Simulated scan of single mutants.
Amino acid sequence: MGADGNGGGAYERDRSCLTTRITADGRDGFPVEPGRYRLVIARACPWANRAAIVRRLMGLEDVLSLGIAGPVHDERSWCFHLDPGGRDPVLGIEWLREAFLRRDPGYPHGITVPAIVDVPTGEVVTNDFERITLDLGSQWSAHQREGAPDLYPERWRDEIDDVAGKVYRDVNNGVYACGFARTQAAYDEAYRRLWQRLDWLEERLAGRRYLVGDTLTEADVRLFPTLARFDAVYHGHFKCNRQKLTELPALWAYARDLFQTPGFGDTIDFAQIKAHYHVVHQTINPTGIVPAGPDVRGWLSPHGREQLGGRPFGDGSPPGPPPPAERVPPLG
């Protein structure tokens, strides 16, 4: 998840990763090939959640298989404890670290999801969470479903990058900066920046349905996983508690709108999210007790955002339902 970096108590995420790309032309030695690769995620992880969403929106389920690490792990990081025998059925490994060490026996960085593994060799190709979603939306275009949306349209890229950058710094990573701060001053600064940005987003979304333009983009994909986890874990567990998401009218309606859009809410498993944060983060929650709440049925309540216009998929169409083996438990 990262490490404290500057000695002042502020949390700094370790963004070191394997930056090898899987591309249509195979420039890095890994060409796009149906069935060759396996995307490994964890339902609990917001960074992996992005990749799961884009894979769904692009309709890549039949060409890029999905491995799901369980929510609970130790210092060895993500493992496949939900699978029969505790092993991924395709890769045959118990721990994701095995695939990283096959790529580099001395791999010095974090064992993180999302990661894409080359099935024939069992080696991780990449765990570059920012690049993975962009490449699933572009490099895999020959295998995308008919009606797949363009999440990174050329004319909006500068604005998408600007908004997504602010969201990453102050919100996606900002909640971690609050939760893992080691001094009051570091926490106070992270909290200030988080809520300054959430107020900015609340104002921005009051009069527009999506963050950039009038369709879903990478910016929305990157904000949604944090909002989905906000009341369940970040509000209390990470001390981001000025208000709940449900108390922010525009952001709460926006989050429900996305949750009810195929490809978004059908990737969310609240039980796994709560189990991960409350059990694994022993320095924050030493008892390991997982809270029973909050009531998540409100995610299915009407959001009223249609009145703002916008076309979620642009000239495209929504994806179909997820494969049976990938379905998450229904709410309620």
Score class of each variant (00 low, 15 high):
85 G>V: 01
327 R>P: 09
304 G>C: 07
266 D>W: 00
281 H>G: 05
237 H>K: 04
168 Y>N: 13
176 Y>S: 10
188 D>H: 07
231 D>H: 10
74 D>W: 07
322 P>A: 13
284 I>M: 06
172 N>V: 15
305 R>G: 10
14 D>A: 11
305 R>I: 07
84 P>D: 11
11 Y>T: 12
145 R>I: 11
127 N>Y: 05
184 Q>G: 10
78 W>G: 10
170 D>R: 15
192 R>L: 13
41 I>R: 00
204 R>M: 12
256 R>A: 11
25 D>E: 15
217 T>E: 02
104 D>G: 07
254 Y>E: 02
196 Q>P: 05
301 S>L: 08
257 D>L: 08
331 L>H: 06
94 E>Y: 01
310 G>S: 03
37 Y>C: 10
259 F>K: 02
33 E>Y: 02
22 I>S: 03
178 C>K: 04
141 S>N: 07
81 H>D: 14
228 A>S: 14
39 L>M: 10
325 A>D: 02
50 R>A: 02
192 R>H: 12
247 E>P: 11
251 L>C: 12
139 Q>R: 09
284 I>N: 06
116 I>G: 06
131 R>W: 12
55 R>H: 05
7 G>K: 03
89 P>Y: 09
127 N>L: 01
57 L>T: 05
264 F>Y: 07
311 R>C: 09
224 F>W: 15
141 S>L: 09
120 P>C: 08
55 R>F: 00
135 D>H: 09
211 L>I: 06
148 A>L: 14
46 P>G: 03
214 D>N: 11
321 P>Q: 00
258 L>H: 06
232 A>D: 11
157 R>M: 12
139 Q>L: 12
203 E>V: 14
241 N>I: 04
39 L>E: 04
28 D>V: 04
332 G>R: 01
48 A>H: 04
327 R>W: 05
176 Y>N: 11
292 A>D: 14
9 G>K: 05
125 V>R: 01
90 V>F: 01
303 H>R: 03
70 G>I: 09
23 T>E: 13
221 V>Q: 07
209 R>Q: 04
273 I>T: 08
188 D>R: 11
170 D>T: 13
220 D>G: 01
3 A>P: 00
123 E>R: 15
311 R>M: 12
234 Y>W: 12
270 F>I: 10
80 F>L: 04
138 S>P: 02
130 E>S: 03
41 I>N: 04
247 E>L: 07
23 T>S: 15
298 G>D: 08
116 I>N: 06
212 V>E: 05
209 R>E: 09
12 E>T: 15
63 V>W: 01
81 H>Y: 03
174 G>C: 06
140 W>I: 11
100 F>P: 13
61 E>R: 04
46 P>D: 06
150 D>Y: 02
207 G>F: 00
94 E>Q: 15
257 D>V: 08
239 K>W: 05
65 S>H: 00
149 P>F: 07
46 P>S: 03
10 A>T: 13
157 R>Y: 09
125 V>K: 02
162 D>Q: 14
162 D>C: 09
332 G>E: 03
237 H>A: 04
